[in-house]
Amino acid sequence: MTRGWLIAKSVLVKKVGDGQNTRFWLDCWIGDMPLCKKFPRLATLEVDIGCMVADRWTPRGWTWQWRRTFKGGVSYSQLESMVHLLQSFSCSQKTDVWHWNLEEDEEFMVGGTRKMIDSEVLRGSLTKTRWNKWVPSKVNIFVWRLRLGRIPTKMKLRDRGIDVATLGRCCARFVEWNRRRWSICS
């Protein structure tokens, strides 16, 4: 699993209000995965896989639109499980919103995101991440990668077992200059 998924799943949570902006089968709005993955047989039987929560919810309960009727088997078992999962849910008058779990007031803040990156992604780093808003993003990212030692220099490539002899002479001169510089400093 990539870090991007880890961050998105742990930080962003969909809160359903009236259900007008949340897809019933395709969005992750109840439980830890979309209903189409949790109940795949029912999702294939659904007439409109892109329907919204509001399309399936009425004040009297849930309504379904299946391609065919079913009376038992895996489909019926999945329907029972889904109804059990949905029994505590009801729509409200509020609109659907995304909540950000890093801040107490559940509002997105750059500072909270930076703290999360420092604590979760950059655990080995002793200093905090500082982004300079006056320079382009690619410069911030380059400096960040440089501080982490993630720039693929010739020395780093050689340390990782890559044949650096095939690289150009310009790189070789830089490596030699860098080696002399480090030996003087240490």
Rank of each mutant, 00 (worst) to 15 (best):
L102Y: 01
P59R: 15
W62E: 10
F70C: 02
D27Y: 02
Q93D: 04
S75I: 03
H84K: 14
K128H: 12
S88V: 07
S119G: 04
F89M: 05
L79E: 11
W100N: 12
Q87R: 14
C36M: 11
V83A: 06
M82P: 07
M33P: 07
L79A: 11
S137W: 15
T113W: 10
G31Q: 08
I49D: 03
W134S: 15
K37F: 04
N140V: 06
C91S: 14
T113Q: 11
R130A: 07
W62M: 09
K94C: 03
V74G: 00
M33H: 09
K138H: 13
Q78F: 04
S77D: 10
Q78K: 01
W100M: 11
P34A: 05
K138I: 06
V139Y: 08
P59W: 10
K133Y: 04
I117C: 14
D96Q: 02
E107Q: 07
S88I: 05
D118Y: 09
M82D: 08
T69D: 01
A54K: 08
R60E: 02
E107I: 01
L45V: 06
N132P: 00
W131L: 15
L102F: 02
K138D: 09
R68C: 11
C28K: 03
D105V: 07
G72K: 03
D105C: 07
A54V: 12
G61C: 04
I117N: 06
T127R: 15
S81T: 01
W62P: 05
C91A: 14
G112A: 15
D105W: 00
T58R: 14
M116H: 08
W64Y: 08
S88K: 03
S92K: 09
T95G: 12
L126C: 11
Q87W: 08
G112Y: 06
L86D: 09
D27V: 08
R123W: 13
T63Y: 02
F108R: 08
E46Q: 05
T44D: 12
Q78I: 01
S81Q: 13
T69H: 06
K94S: 08
W64V: 03
C28T: 01
K94R: 13
D27T: 09
K133L: 08
G124M: 12
Q87V: 06
V74I: 12
C91L: 11
F39C: 00
H84G: 11
M82L: 12
K94D: 03
L79V: 00
W131T: 02
Q87N: 09
R130P: 06
R130Q: 11
N101G: 13
L126R: 14
C91E: 00
P34G: 04
K128S: 15
G50F: 06
V53W: 02
C28Y: 02
I117V: 15
W25R: 13
V53A: 00
F39D: 02
D48F: 10
N140A: 10
V47F: 03
T127H: 13
V97G: 03
W66P: 02
N132M: 10
S75D: 07
V97A: 13
G112T: 12
N132S: 13
M109D: 09
E104D: 11
L86A: 03
G31S: 09
R130H: 00
S75E: 08
E80W: 01
K115P: 00
V74Q: 14
W98E: 04
P34C: 04
W25M: 12
M109W: 11
G111T: 08
L126N: 15
T58K: 11
K38A: 13
V53H: 07
E46V: 00
Q78T: 03
Y76W: 10
D48A: 09
I49N: 02
E120W: 15
E104A: 13
Q65S: 13
